[in-house]
């Protein structure tokens, strides 16, 4: 067998996972919210003049525990996809998320975040209204949130637009979900000057969910029903819900503060080429 065909097979496998995470029948954030949480009430608007339907916030219960929810939402029907802009958030969406983090802090509510976003919207109006600033401020809001915070990547975790609602005390990733520095198409355009080489880029970026756990970026891979979550939404929620309960219970029991969360993200390294390279004491 040639190395070339092995590389091509690896690229095909990597691409299959991306297609599963983007499957049109995959349960979206609100499908999982409906199946994992009770008494969900959506809240609207950033209280600064905008309401971006690509990011949904709300209040709910997870069993006995009240929670604040933030979720990326793509939209299923053609109309809904248009309205929600395929889940690609504008600055108003990030400012709405900031409102949710402030609300959770004030009312001492733990936060649950559901991530499924191709990326923050790359458009003129988004830039004019400070897309980069909105994302930066949302990152900061997560790192000062005083209450327990669990995030789960349920589909696509696209770049800075995903990071803005990802920086939790515990990060879960569904089996066929991924987190990436740039979409495989964008990465291919940058690395190979050819967006068509997305399969190769996906393989090189090593987007398997399990890698995030190995690298200390996520805490756990949440299994999906055989074949993928798109085959059985209830089954996917049944596998996810107890993991949310487990991690939230642990965080509440341990007591959480924002300083510990900042420490978690401060420690991300990325230097060591091999696992044996460790930090020396001082």
């Amino acid at each position: 067998m040639t190395a070339g065909s092995e590389g091509a097979r690896e690229a095909d496998r990597a691409w299959e996972r991306i297609e599963l995470s983007r499957h049109p029948e995959r349960p979206y954030s609100l499908d999982l919210v409906a199946r994992c949480l009770e008494d969900f009430t959506e809240l609207h608007g950033d209280r600064q003049g905008g309401d971006d339907p690509a990011i949904v916030i709300g209040l709910a219960r997870l069993g006995p525990r009240p929670v604040a929810v933030v979720a990326n939402q793509k939209g299923r029907s053609l109309e809904e996809r248009g309205r929600r802009n395929f889940g690609m958030a504008h600055p108003e969406g990030y400012r709405k998320a900031q409102r949710l983090f402030r609300l959770a802090g004030r009312l001492r509510l733990p936060v649950l975040s559901f991530i499924d976003i191709p990326g923050a919207y790359p458009g003129v109006a988004a830039e004019e209204r400070g897309q980069a600033w909105a994302i930066a401020q949302t990152i900061e809001a997560q790192l000062t949130l005083p209450t327990p915070y669990v995030a789960v990547i349920v589909g696509e975790g696209g770049s800075g637009g995903a990071l803005a609602t990802l920086l939790a005390d515990r990060v879960l990733v569904m089996e066929h979900a991924f987190l990436t520095v740039a979409s495989p198409e964008t990465a291919a355009a940058i690395l190979f000057r050819d967006a068509g080489r997305k399969r190769q880029a996906a393989a090189a970026l090593r987007l398997e969910a399990a890698n995030l756990v190995e690298w200390g970026i996520a805490d756990e891979v949440v299994p999906e029903p055989p074949g993928g979550a798109h085959r059985d939404w209830d089954g996917a929620a049944t596998l996810l819900r107890p993991r949310l309960v487990h991690h939230l219970d642990e965080l509440v029991a341990a007591g959480v503060d924002a300083a510990r969360r900042r420490e978690r993200y401060r420690r991300i390294d990325g230097f060591a080429a091999a696992p044996e390279a460790t930090t020396r004491g001082h």
Binding site: G160, L163, L179, A187, I190, L212, E263
Partner: peptide
């Protein structure tokens, strides 16, 4: 971001803000 460092590059956004 530096594409060649993948999610490690992405997470530097969080690291820098934390610091």
């Amino acid at each position: 971001a530096r594409m060649q460092e993948g999610v490690f590059s992405l997470l530097q956004m969080a690291k820098s803000v934390a610091a």
